[in-house]
Simulated assay, not measured.
Amino acid sequence: MKRVVSDTRSKAIPSASSSQAPAAAWSDPGFSADVISWQKQHGRHALPWQNTRDAYRVWLSEIMLQQTQVAAVIPYYLRFLETFPTVASLAAAPSEDVMAHWSGLGYYSRARNLHKCAQTIVGEYGGVFPSDPELLEQLPGIGRSTAAAISAFSYGTRAAILDGNVKRVFARVFGVERYPGEKAVENELWLRAVALLPESGVEAYTQGLMDLGATLCTRNSPSCQRCPLAHRCIAYATGRTSELPIRKPKKTVPERQTTMLLIVDKDEILLEQRPDKGIWGGLLSLPELAAESASSSAQFDAAMTQAVARFGVATSQEKLSMFTHVFTHFKLHITPYHIALARRVERAGQDQYAWYPLAKMADAPLPAPVKKLLLAVFREPDLLTQ
């Protein structure tokens, strides 16, 4: 039996051909009133970055929360503030310190942009975040939705957000029949997001949309009975909450192979600084053999010997268990080799390499899977004790 939807709900989103529909047609004060009332009674109010107008703290939380769950962000956020309590302290910090504090949180371009943004705020804005969302959007790592959230929470600016959670809420409530990531659909959702902004209470409204998507209107098993928008939700009325929003068309996930070298000399391991661009950009990681090195057993052995010889004379070599790390767009199959040196060779022209104490692995600016591997291999208490 289909549920009856209140007449107060907005009309379903129009087709792509009507994307120029006036935003006023989607205005609905009742929508924002329901969200604000619910947020004040049932929303989240005790997160570490709430109850403040400090734009630095708001900005830091919004960047960390991009594509990352709240529970994962909280310890990183608190640790960041202990080391970098102000935007000036973050701007002045060495990049390797920033990356080390971000290690394990993923999407490392966020950390690089975070550092650049802090330096821009200090250098061009005197350490004060601008209140204008359009100016915020021009800063490194800040998109339109993030700029609106920062401005709304820090300055009370009436600006619309449209992150993944909000897209899901809109797609269900308004019965969006197309993939929200499609550009034409996203443009229509932006029009609706702007049209639905309340005249006042934008902070509670913005937080309410985020809270609804994160706690009730979840991707799987949404809690529709407790949702303040259930009476106007098309997906709920038609029993299609499991279908909406429309999922992104699936593509075959590419798979890649690499060999990582754990080259150890006494109580130090060889690490390599990765380029700023690409996966794990700016972090330290393990040296790797090129994929083509594995085209044959003989070629692989020759490449391995040549790679190790650059740094010393090997006394032992052990192949460890392969493991897989899944990125957003591909899978990486990693085969690690543990290589102990009898004698280290120091050579010029290898500035991207550094010998790092095994005892400090836990605090090294390493990608999460690499750090996990190293801690598993060198877990002896005497090596990992600070």
Rank of each mutant, 00 (worst) to 15 (best):
L373Q: 09
M322L: 07
L320P: 05
A340M: 15
T335Q: 11
R344G: 00
K360L: 11
K360F: 09
L358F: 00
E346N: 06
L373G: 07
Y337K: 07
H333T: 13
V326Y: 13
G349Q: 01
H333K: 15
G349H: 01
Y353Q: 00
F323L: 00
R344I: 04
L341Q: 03
Q350I: 03
L373W: 10
L358V: 00
A368Q: 14
D363Q: 11
P369D: 06
A368E: 10
H333N: 14
L320I: 06
F323V: 03
F323C: 02
A342V: 04
P369G: 05
F323S: 01
L373M: 10
S321Q: 15
L373N: 09
L320Q: 12
R379H: 12
G349E: 00
L358M: 03
A348K: 15
Y353T: 00
D351E: 13
L366P: 02
A354P: 03
K371F: 02
T328Y: 07
M322N: 07
Q352S: 12
P357T: 08
A368H: 10
F330R: 07
V345W: 14
L373Y: 08
P336R: 01
L332S: 14
K372R: 08
D363A: 13
T335C: 08
P365Q: 04
L358W: 00
Q352I: 09
L341R: 04
P369N: 07
I334H: 04
R343W: 06
H338V: 11
V370W: 03
L332F: 11
K331T: 12
L375V: 05
K319V: 09
Q352P: 09
A359Q: 14
D351C: 10
K371I: 02
A368T: 08
V326M: 08
A348R: 15
A340S: 15
P367T: 06
A342P: 07
L320D: 06
T335P: 02
M322A: 08
L366F: 01
A376Q: 09
T328Q: 10
A364K: 01
L332Q: 15
G349V: 05
A362G: 05
V326C: 05
H325A: 07
P336Q: 00
A354V: 15
K360V: 08
Y353G: 01
R347V: 03
F323E: 02
W355A: 06
F378N: 04
D351K: 14
Y356V: 02
D351W: 03
L320F: 04
A368N: 12
A348Q: 15
F378E: 03
W355I: 02
K360S: 12
T328P: 08
L374V: 05
Y356N: 03
T335K: 14
L332P: 12
G349K: 00
L374Q: 04
R343S: 10
A342H: 10
A340I: 14
Y337W: 15
A340V: 15
I334F: 05
P367N: 13
P369C: 03
S321R: 15
